[in-house]
């Protein structure tokens, strides 16, 4: 066993060396930081890290903080609708563009360009367009529709949908690009076969094509999930968490406590909770998608 392992290492020695930078980054930057922040979540750290131990006190405080609970709930709502709408819209766009439309590259560019803009820009510009005093509502009223109401950014019950609107605008082009790429890779034979059988196109897409695009779908959902879990800039630019705490999100809670409120202990407790949640949700996805059948590398 030992000799065999030595031989294995010797044969692949350069590969081990080549992966050292990655190992260093994972161990020091990622695992090290995670461990460090988990450690701090059990301390009473305020503005600067402290080395004491206060048990689960920060977690108790955290789940007793209504703003944190609101943030979690908001993230769930935003993530659900964001992923759903981005996915459906991205698929529809890709399928429609794939029908040999004219000016295909123009459409593709139009749907993809928001992804090139930063989240800050997405938040600022939609905040402006949805602002009742300046944007669509004011314009419609200017045309004489005095009863027209579009007050999402200022309405506590609708503000999350304003945020979702901006993020969908930003992200659905990415899904479109990925799905479109997938569609281009599908064998044309399928269409011939199904047409002979008289199966309607929508059913072919739903029950044959989409399942074939599973890797694309998973990858796009993973990329979108990364951005939604970290979502901070767009909310700050658009609503700064308001009205009240109606559009607060966990990343903003962490950021505010880390800096504005000088409460590192609570912030790291919050980020630990996020980390565990991500682990629980994402680990099975990542495992099944990227490792289960990676027979060649392992």
């Amino acid at each position: 066993m030992g000799a065999e392992f030595t031989r294995h290492v010797r044969r692949n020695l350069v590969a081990y060396i080549a992966l050292l930078p990655m190992a260093a980054v994972v161990i020091f930057a990622y695992l090290g930081t995670m461990a460090w922040s988990v450690r701090l979540s059990f301390s009473s750290s305020k503005l600067l890290p402290r080395n004491d131990f206060v048990g689960f006190a920060q977690y108790v405080t955290l789940f007793d903080t209504s703003r944190w609970l609101t943030s979690l709930g908001n993230l769930a709502v935003i993530a659900f609708f964001f992923l759903l709408i981005c996915f459906v819209l991205g698929c529809l766009l890709a399928i429609f563009i794939d029908q040999n439309v004219r000016a295909e590259s123009l459409f593709r560019t139009v749907f993809l360009y928001p992804y090139a803009m930063s989240f800050v820009v997405a938040g600022l510009i939609w905040q402006w367009i949805l602002n009742p005093d300046l944007g669509i509502q004011a314009t419609m009223r200017g045309f004489g529709f005095s009863g027209f109401v579009l007050d999402w950014v200022v309405n506590p019950r609708m503000v999350l949908y304003a945020v979702i609107l901006a993020t969908v605008w930003h992200g659905s082009g990415l899904v479109m690009a990925l799905i479109l790429a997938g569609l281009r890779g599908i064998d044309g034979e399928i269409w011939r076969a199904t047409r002979i059988d008289g199966i309607p196109a929508w059913r072919v897409y739903l029950s044959i094509v989409l399942p074939m695009l599973r890797p694309m779908i998973i990858t796009s959902l993973v990329l979108l999930s990364i951005s939604i879990v970290k979502m901070y800039d767009v909310v700050v630019a658009m609503t700064n968490g308001g009205p009240g705490t109606a559009s607060e999100v966990p990343a903003k809670f962490i950021m505010d406590n880390l800096f504005e409120r000088a409460n590192i202990g609570l912030a790291t407790a919050a980020s630990t909770v996020m980390l565990i949640t991500v682990l629980l949700v994402m680990a099975p996805v990542i495992y099944s998608q990227y490792f289960r059948k990676s027979g060649r590398a392992a």
Binding site: K230, Y232, I254, M255, L258, S271, M274, V278
Partner: peptide, 8 residues
């Protein structure tokens, strides 16, 4: 690790 907010 890519899911953790940068702030941390």
């Amino acid at each position: 690790g890519s899911f953790i907010p940068y702030q941390v």
